[in-house]
């Protein structure tokens, strides 16, 4: 398959604009080979640009369509695609925006991109039924500390030094723009309920605990760590709130400590 690999590698170079047109192709009687290659170049960039716009609708609204096009083109020139599913494209936009000079005046943009990517992944995450809470009757109270709570695949936490939850909500259909960036940071919890992706704010202690759980800590471990740092942490309310949001899908018992 070397000949096929070699020819298509040259064609790939043509599409990426890195190589000169080659004698690979027969001439059309209606247009030049350059135009044929240009159609493929436009398809390549256009498809990735549309995929970015689909994944980051709030970034596009924040900066406007014209700036977004430029931003997308700069991003695409640095980041190729690694998946044949276009919904997988664009994960690195948040990192890219951190160092993107033309957007320097919008320091919250990178964190908003991280939140939007979390929402995007949540939308396509595999399904998982919520935990039936009566199953806790099977666990002896002395085992509670060893519980490993399983979190819904759509669940993500995004922390920021900016009010990203408020900015996100302002861009929803009923949102209003009464946001002062000086208000400080917010931590966003992204979940999916009834096929709908939702974002809500977590307090610092809730997020601290939830991050521990999501990193695979046992219930006792995570709770101790959070209570040490945030003595007022309310485990009961946090567990109930997250249960009501469908965050818990299962539990297992960790090794006895």
């Amino acid at each position: 398959m070397n000949a096929l690999h070699d020819e298509l590698s040259v064609f790939a170079g043509n599409i990426l604009g890195a190589a000169q047109p080659t004698p690979l192709f027969d001439a059309s009687t209606h247009y030049t080979t350059d135009i044929g290659i240009e159609v493929y170049r436009n398809n390549y960039r256009g498809n990735l640009q549309d995929a970015l716009a689909g994944a980051y609708p709030i970034i596009e609204q924040l900066v406007g369509a014209e700036f977004f096009r430029r931003l997308a083109r700069d991003f695409i020139s640095l980041h190729g695609s690694f998946s044949a599913n276009l919904f997988d494209y664009g994960a690195e936009l948040s990192d890219f925006l951190m160092g993107y000079a033309p957007a320097h005046s919008l320091p919250y943009l990178s964190d908003m991109a991280r939140l939007e990517w979390a929402c995007h992944r949540a939308y396509f995450a595999v399904d998982a039924a919520p935990l039936e809470l009566v199953r806790f009757t099977q666990v002896a109270p002395e085992e509670y500390a060893n519980l490993l709570l399983h979190v819904h695949p759509a669940c993500h936490i995004v922390a920021s030094a900016f009010p990203i939850v408020e900015i996100w909500q302002a861009h929803q259909p009923v949102g209003t723009f009464e946001i002062d960036l000086a208000r400080g940071g917010e931590i966003a919890l992204v979940i999916r309920q009834d096929d709908v992706v939702t974002v809500r704010e977590l307090t610092e202690d809730e997020a601290h605990w939830m991050n521990g759980i999501m990193q695979g800590q046992r219930l006792g471990e995570a709770t101790d760590a959070t209570l040490n740092r945030h003595p007022a942490f309310d485990l009961q309310n946090t567990l109930l709130l997250l249960a009501s949001l469908g965050v818990w899908t299962d539990f297992t018992l960790g090794e006895l400590s």
């Binding site: 096929l4 690999h5 298509l8 493929y40 498809n47 990735l48 995929a51 695609s81 690694f82 276009l86």
Partner: peptide, 16 residues
């Protein structure tokens, strides 16, 4: 085809 050398082109590309 759509992939060569790990690079994916999200398009439907012709081949010889």
């Amino acid at each position: 085809w759509n992939t060569v050398g790990g690079k994916v082109f999200n398009d439907l590309l012709p081949f010889p």
